[in-house]
Simulated scan of single mutants.
Amino acid sequence: MKNIVVILAALSGIGFLTSARLPESGPLPAVRPGKSNTTTSAPARPPIPEQKPESGKPETPPVKEDSPNSSAIPEKQGPKLPSQQTLEEQHLTIAAESDAEHSECVKELQSLGVVFKDISRIDDGNGCGIDKPIKVSEVLPGVKIKPDAVFRCPVALALAHWMKESVIPAARIAAPDQGNILAINQASSYICRLRNGAETGKVSEHARGNAIDVASFSFEKGKDIAVKPRREDSTLIGAFQRTVSAAGCLFFTTVLDPESDAAHETHFHLDVLERKGGYRYCH
């Protein structure tokens, strides 16, 4: 009888074990090396790895235009092209000139024999004007400028040195039978306009009193020597023009001659625009 009870109890324990369920989560049995666990199922919802940004840095969340922080990311705008500007749009001001520098320049003009006079400050609006203008009637003793030219003192000083050290010596070699140079005939000094007289673009250096256009040279004898295209001119006059054009870059920061473009076929454009690093543009 005892043996039967023991057997029944053992059978009841086996039935209980077979009907019991394992918990849904819990430690999984370790997999032996070299064998795969084919009976164990993976977790129902495996974690999804976060995607890294391509740049390796966290991305900046976009800012809406109407957001209070919309100014945190400024809108990128391309530079305004010169051709879209007018004198009114450029909001220019007349550059102030140092009293000491102007006084020193005037002393140098006087030592060279330049005939000039100080005139009242010019302000034509829109950035056109000269703080300390002068009117020049003779660039050197006996060499007139026709008509009288108005510009800043540094232009007159560069013009006097160019004439004395380059133009006059070259003319004596190229045109010895024509005598001395009596006059420079200028096409433009101070004038309020854009570059090359265009309707749009940047303001001209003429409008700042920094430039002079030279059209021709008058001599004691013979015809004037006009500034015109002479690239293929193999005469001494052609050599004279090319020589004084090249030498102009020793005294001016910008030299444009008839070989530069169609806008300068009839004159030299000479100016004293200051550029970074002392850069000069001569063509």
Results as ranks from 00 to 15, higher is better:
residue 2 K to M: 13
residue 9 A to N: 08
residue 10 A to F: 15
residue 12 S to M: 06
residue 13 G to Y: 14
residue 14 I to Q: 06
residue 16 F to K: 10
residue 17 L to M: 15
residue 17 L to V: 15
residue 19 S to T: 15
residue 20 A to Y: 11
residue 27 P to W: 04
residue 30 A to I: 03
residue 35 K to G: 06
residue 36 S to T: 05
residue 37 N to R: 01
residue 37 N to A: 07
residue 38 T to Y: 13
residue 40 T to Q: 15
residue 46 P to K: 11
residue 48 I to H: 10
residue 57 K to D: 11
residue 72 A to V: 12
residue 72 A to L: 15
residue 74 P to H: 02
residue 76 K to C: 01
residue 77 Q to L: 08
residue 80 K to S: 07
residue 82 P to A: 05
residue 86 T to A: 03
residue 90 Q to I: 08
residue 92 L to R: 08
residue 95 A to F: 02
residue 95 A to Q: 14
residue 104 E to Y: 08
residue 106 V to W: 02
residue 113 G to I: 00
residue 122 I to Y: 04
residue 125 G to N: 03
residue 127 G to M: 00
residue 138 E to Y: 02
residue 138 E to D: 09
residue 139 V to E: 02
residue 139 V to Q: 02
residue 140 L to D: 03
residue 152 R to L: 12
residue 163 M to T: 10
residue 166 S to G: 07
residue 168 I to M: 02
residue 172 R to N: 07
residue 179 G to Q: 05
residue 185 N to K: 05
residue 190 Y to T: 12
residue 195 R to A: 03
residue 198 A to D: 10
residue 207 A to M: 08
residue 207 A to T: 05
residue 213 D to Q: 10
residue 217 F to V: 12
residue 217 F to L: 15
residue 218 S to E: 13
residue 221 K to E: 13
residue 227 V to G: 13
residue 229 P to Y: 09
residue 239 A to M: 09
residue 247 A to K: 10
residue 249 C to R: 07
residue 249 C to F: 08
residue 264 H to Y: 02
residue 272 V to D: 04
residue 277 G to L: 12
residue 278 G to N: 06
residue 281 Y to L: 15
